[in-house]
Protein backbone atom coordinates (compact mmCIF):
# COMPACT_ATOMS: atom_id res chain seq x y z
CA UNK A 1 0.00 0.00 0.00
CA UNK A 2 1.31 3.40 -0.95
CA UNK A 3 1.51 5.02 2.44
CA UNK A 4 1.12 8.72 2.80
CA UNK A 5 4.51 10.38 2.93
CA UNK A 6 3.54 13.25 5.16
CA UNK A 7 1.14 11.98 7.76
CA UNK A 8 -0.09 15.37 8.84
CA UNK A 9 -1.87 16.09 5.55
CA UNK A 10 -5.47 15.10 4.94
CA UNK A 11 -5.52 16.27 1.35
CA UNK A 12 -2.65 16.87 -1.05
CA UNK A 13 -3.37 18.26 -4.49
CA UNK A 14 -0.56 18.83 -6.96
CA UNK A 15 -1.04 20.35 -10.40
CA UNK A 16 -4.58 19.09 -10.67
CA UNK A 17 -6.04 19.72 -14.12
CA UNK A 18 -9.51 18.79 -15.27
CA UNK A 19 -10.69 19.54 -18.78
CA UNK A 20 -14.06 19.05 -20.39
CA UNK A 21 -13.25 19.18 -24.07
CA UNK A 22 -11.43 22.45 -24.54
CA UNK A 23 -12.90 23.93 -21.36
CA UNK A 24 -10.49 23.94 -18.43
CA UNK A 25 -12.55 23.53 -15.26
CA UNK A 26 -9.57 23.11 -12.93
CA UNK A 27 -6.38 24.78 -14.01
CA UNK A 28 -3.31 23.48 -12.14
CA UNK A 29 -4.69 23.46 -8.62
CA UNK A 30 -2.16 23.16 -5.83
CA UNK A 31 -3.08 22.95 -2.18
CA UNK A 32 -2.77 20.90 0.96
CA UNK A 33 -5.19 20.52 3.84
CA UNK A 34 -3.87 19.69 7.30
CA UNK A 35 -5.41 17.06 9.48
CA UNK A 36 -7.99 18.54 11.85
CA UNK A 37 -8.24 21.69 9.79
CA UNK A 38 -11.45 23.44 8.74
CA UNK A 39 -10.74 24.30 5.14
CA UNK A 40 -13.05 26.71 3.32
CA UNK A 41 -13.30 26.13 -0.41
CA UNK A 42 -14.86 29.26 -1.90
CA UNK A 43 -15.46 30.49 -5.39
CA UNK A 44 -18.04 32.06 -7.66
CA UNK A 45 -20.64 29.90 -9.41
CA UNK A 46 -18.94 28.08 -12.22
CA UNK A 47 -15.43 28.69 -10.89
CA UNK A 48 -14.81 24.93 -10.75
CA UNK A 49 -15.48 24.10 -7.09
CA UNK A 50 -17.92 21.29 -7.73
CA UNK A 51 -15.58 19.72 -10.29
CA UNK A 52 -12.72 19.74 -7.80
CA UNK A 53 -14.83 18.29 -4.99
CA UNK A 54 -16.04 15.50 -7.25
CA UNK A 55 -12.45 14.60 -7.99
CA UNK A 56 -11.46 14.68 -4.33
CA UNK A 57 -14.36 12.38 -3.45
CA UNK A 58 -13.36 9.93 -6.15
CA UNK A 59 -16.43 10.53 -8.28
CA UNK A 60 -14.52 11.85 -11.25
CA UNK A 61 -11.04 11.36 -12.71
CA UNK A 62 -8.65 14.25 -13.09
CA UNK A 63 -7.18 14.93 -16.53
CA UNK A 64 -3.75 15.16 -14.94
CA UNK A 65 -2.05 15.89 -11.64
CA UNK A 66 -1.62 14.15 -8.31
CA UNK A 67 -4.33 13.91 -5.71
CA UNK A 68 -4.04 12.26 -2.36
CA UNK A 69 -6.98 12.13 0.03
CA UNK A 70 -6.79 10.71 3.56
CA UNK A 71 -3.46 9.17 2.61
CA UNK A 72 -4.75 7.37 -0.45
CA UNK A 73 -4.02 7.92 -4.11
CA UNK A 74 -6.97 9.05 -6.21
CA UNK A 75 -5.97 6.91 -9.20
CA UNK A 76 -5.23 3.62 -7.49
CA UNK A 77 -7.14 3.66 -4.24
CA UNK A 78 -10.50 5.16 -5.01
CA UNK A 79 -12.38 2.56 -3.01
CA UNK A 80 -10.27 3.23 0.05
CA UNK A 81 -10.87 6.94 -0.33
CA UNK A 82 -14.62 6.39 -0.46
CA UNK A 83 -14.44 4.41 2.77
CA UNK A 84 -12.48 7.14 4.47
CA UNK A 85 -14.47 10.22 3.62
CA UNK A 86 -17.87 11.55 4.58
CA UNK A 87 -19.94 13.67 2.22
CA UNK A 88 -22.91 15.93 2.74
CA UNK A 89 -24.47 18.18 0.12
CA UNK A 90 -26.97 20.97 0.35
CA UNK A 91 -29.65 18.49 -0.58
CA UNK A 92 -29.21 16.51 2.67
CA UNK A 93 -28.78 13.01 1.38
CA UNK A 94 -31.32 11.56 3.82
CA UNK A 95 -34.32 9.50 2.79
CA UNK A 96 -37.43 11.54 3.55
CA UNK A 97 -39.67 8.54 3.86
CA UNK A 98 -37.51 6.64 6.32
CA UNK A 99 -37.28 7.30 10.05
CA UNK A 100 -34.15 8.56 11.74
CA UNK A 101 -33.12 5.09 12.89
CA UNK A 102 -33.79 3.61 9.46
CA UNK A 103 -31.62 6.25 7.79
CA UNK A 104 -28.79 5.59 10.19
CA UNK A 105 -29.17 1.84 9.74
CA UNK A 106 -29.04 2.25 5.98
CA UNK A 107 -25.95 4.44 5.85
CA UNK A 108 -24.27 2.48 8.63
CA UNK A 109 -24.94 -0.67 6.64
CA UNK A 110 -23.37 0.80 3.52
CA UNK A 111 -20.16 1.42 5.41
CA UNK A 112 -20.24 -2.02 6.97
CA UNK A 113 -20.92 -1.01 10.56
CA UNK A 114 -21.95 -3.81 12.88
CA UNK A 115 -25.51 -3.99 14.11
CA UNK A 116 -24.37 -3.18 17.60
CA UNK A 117 -22.42 -0.17 16.43
CA UNK A 118 -25.42 1.13 14.47
CA UNK A 119 -27.60 0.81 17.56
CA UNK A 120 -25.08 2.73 19.58
CA UNK A 121 -24.80 5.46 16.96
CA UNK A 122 -28.57 5.80 16.70
CA UNK A 123 -28.94 6.23 20.44
CA UNK A 124 -26.01 8.62 20.51
CA UNK A 125 -27.35 10.85 17.72
CA UNK A 126 -30.87 11.00 19.10
CA UNK A 127 -29.44 12.01 22.44
CA UNK A 128 -26.82 14.42 21.10
CA UNK A 129 -29.06 16.21 18.61
CA UNK A 130 -32.09 16.34 20.89
CA UNK A 131 -34.25 14.27 18.55
CA UNK A 132 -36.11 12.35 21.26
CA UNK A 133 -39.45 13.79 20.15
CA UNK A 134 -38.94 12.58 16.59
CA UNK A 135 -37.88 8.95 16.98
CA UNK A 136 -41.07 7.70 15.37
CA UNK A 137 -41.36 10.37 12.67
CA UNK A 138 -40.25 10.18 9.11
CA UNK A 139 -37.30 12.40 8.28
CA UNK A 140 -39.45 14.67 6.13
CA UNK A 141 -41.35 15.75 9.25
CA UNK A 142 -38.21 17.06 10.93
CA UNK A 143 -37.63 20.79 11.04
CA UNK A 144 -34.99 21.86 8.55
CA UNK A 145 -32.39 22.55 11.21
CA UNK A 146 -32.64 19.08 12.74
CA UNK A 147 -32.58 17.49 9.32
CA UNK A 148 -29.39 19.26 8.49
CA UNK A 149 -27.67 18.29 11.71
CA UNK A 150 -28.82 14.73 11.28
CA UNK A 151 -27.52 14.69 7.70
CA UNK A 152 -24.16 15.80 8.98
CA UNK A 153 -24.11 13.14 11.67
CA UNK A 154 -25.12 10.48 9.17
CA UNK A 155 -22.34 11.64 6.85
CA UNK A 156 -19.82 10.86 9.58
CA UNK A 157 -21.51 7.71 10.90
CA UNK A 158 -18.50 5.64 9.83
CA UNK A 159 -16.13 8.03 11.59
CA UNK A 160 -14.15 9.13 8.53
CA UNK A 161 -11.02 11.21 9.06
CA UNK A 162 -12.23 13.77 6.51
CA UNK A 163 -15.67 15.20 5.67
CA UNK A 164 -16.70 17.15 2.57
CA UNK A 165 -19.55 19.59 3.09
CA UNK A 166 -21.01 21.15 -0.04
CA UNK A 167 -22.98 24.27 0.92
CA UNK A 168 -24.35 22.64 4.05
CA UNK A 169 -26.11 25.74 5.40
CA UNK A 170 -27.99 27.12 2.40
CA UNK A 171 -31.33 28.67 3.38
CA UNK A 172 -31.10 27.74 7.04
CA UNK A 173 -32.12 30.22 9.75
CA UNK A 174 -29.33 32.16 11.44
CA UNK A 175 -29.50 30.37 14.78
CA UNK A 176 -29.49 26.89 13.25
CA UNK A 177 -26.69 27.93 10.94
CA UNK A 178 -24.55 28.80 13.92
CA UNK A 179 -25.47 25.66 15.81
CA UNK A 180 -24.40 23.75 12.76
CA UNK A 181 -21.04 25.43 12.74
CA UNK A 182 -20.57 24.58 16.39
CA UNK A 183 -21.15 20.97 15.41
CA UNK A 184 -18.45 21.35 12.79
CA UNK A 185 -16.07 22.86 15.35
CA UNK A 186 -16.73 20.00 17.71
CA UNK A 187 -15.81 17.41 15.10
CA UNK A 188 -12.75 19.39 14.04
CA UNK A 189 -11.66 19.57 17.67
CA UNK A 190 -11.76 15.75 17.71
CA UNK A 191 -9.30 15.75 14.84
CA UNK A 192 -11.60 15.42 11.83
CA UNK A 193 -10.67 17.39 8.76
CA UNK A 194 -13.52 19.52 7.42
CA UNK A 195 -13.60 20.58 3.79
CA UNK A 196 -16.47 23.00 3.29
CA UNK A 197 -17.99 25.23 0.58
CA UNK A 198 -20.41 28.06 1.30
CA UNK A 199 -21.95 31.18 -0.15
CA UNK A 200 -22.19 32.88 3.25
CA UNK A 201 -19.06 34.96 3.50
CA UNK A 202 -19.28 35.29 7.28
CA UNK A 203 -18.87 31.52 7.40
CA UNK A 204 -15.57 31.87 5.61
CA UNK A 205 -14.35 33.47 8.84
CA UNK A 206 -15.01 30.26 10.74
CA UNK A 207 -12.50 28.38 8.64
CA UNK A 208 -8.88 27.94 9.63
CA UNK A 209 -7.84 28.57 6.07
CA UNK A 210 -9.75 29.60 2.97
CA UNK A 211 -9.08 29.15 -0.70
CA UNK A 212 -10.84 31.27 -3.31
CA UNK A 213 -11.27 29.92 -6.81
CA UNK A 214 -11.71 32.14 -9.84
CA UNK A 215 -12.09 30.75 -13.36
CA UNK A 216 -10.67 27.35 -12.51
CA UNK A 217 -7.63 28.63 -10.61
CA UNK A 218 -6.99 29.16 -6.91
CA UNK A 219 -6.42 32.89 -6.67
CA UNK A 220 -5.88 33.11 -2.95
CA UNK A 221 -5.28 30.69 -0.10
CA UNK A 222 -4.59 31.68 3.49
CA UNK A 223 -6.02 32.37 6.91
CA UNK A 224 -9.01 34.72 6.74
CA UNK A 225 -7.23 37.35 8.83
CA UNK A 226 -4.22 37.35 6.53
CA UNK A 227 -6.38 37.50 3.41
CA UNK A 228 -8.20 40.53 4.79
CA UNK A 229 -4.90 42.20 5.52
CA UNK A 230 -3.44 41.37 2.11
CA UNK A 231 -6.43 42.71 0.23
CA UNK A 232 -6.90 45.58 2.63
CA UNK A 233 -10.50 44.52 3.20
CA UNK A 234 -12.93 44.84 6.10
CA UNK A 235 -14.55 41.48 5.58
CA UNK A 236 -14.13 38.24 3.68
CA UNK A 237 -16.97 39.35 1.45
CA UNK A 238 -14.87 42.26 0.23
CA UNK A 239 -11.91 39.98 -0.36
CA UNK A 240 -14.10 37.64 -2.33
CA UNK A 241 -15.63 40.38 -4.45
CA UNK A 242 -12.26 41.93 -5.19
CA UNK A 243 -10.91 38.60 -6.36
CA UNK A 244 -13.92 37.31 -8.21
CA UNK A 245 -14.54 40.55 -10.07
CA UNK A 246 -10.93 40.45 -11.15
Amino acid sequence: MAENKSNSKAVIVKDLVKKFGSFVANDHLNFEVDKGEIFGFLGANGAGKTTAIKILCGLSHPTSGEVNVAGYDIYKQRDLIKKNIGYMSQKFSLYDDLSIAENIRFYGGIYGLSRKKIKEKTAEYIEKLGLQAYTKSMVKELPLGFKQKLAFSVAIVHDPPIVFLDEPTGGVDPITRRQFWELIYKEAAKGKTIFVTTHYMDEAEYCDRVSIMVDGRIEALDKPAILKETYNAESMEEVFIQLARG
Binding site: A44, N45, Q90, G170, H199, M201, E237, F240, I241, A244
Partner: peptide, 13 residues
Amino acid sequence: DEPTTGVDAVSRK
Protein backbone atom coordinates in the same frame (compact mmCIF):
# COMPACT_ATOMS: atom_id res chain seq x y z
CA ASP B 1 -38.77 34.76 -4.85
CA GLU B 2 -35.28 34.09 -3.51
CA PRO B 3 -33.51 35.45 -6.57
CA THR B 4 -30.09 35.21 -4.91
CA THR B 5 -30.24 31.78 -3.31
CA GLY B 6 -27.31 29.62 -4.30
CA VAL B 7 -25.70 32.47 -6.20
CA ASP B 8 -22.21 33.63 -5.31
CA ALA B 9 -21.46 36.87 -3.49
CA VAL B 10 -20.40 38.73 -6.62
CA SER B 11 -23.50 37.89 -8.61
CA ARG B 12 -25.63 38.74 -5.60
CA LYS B 13 -24.10 42.17 -5.35
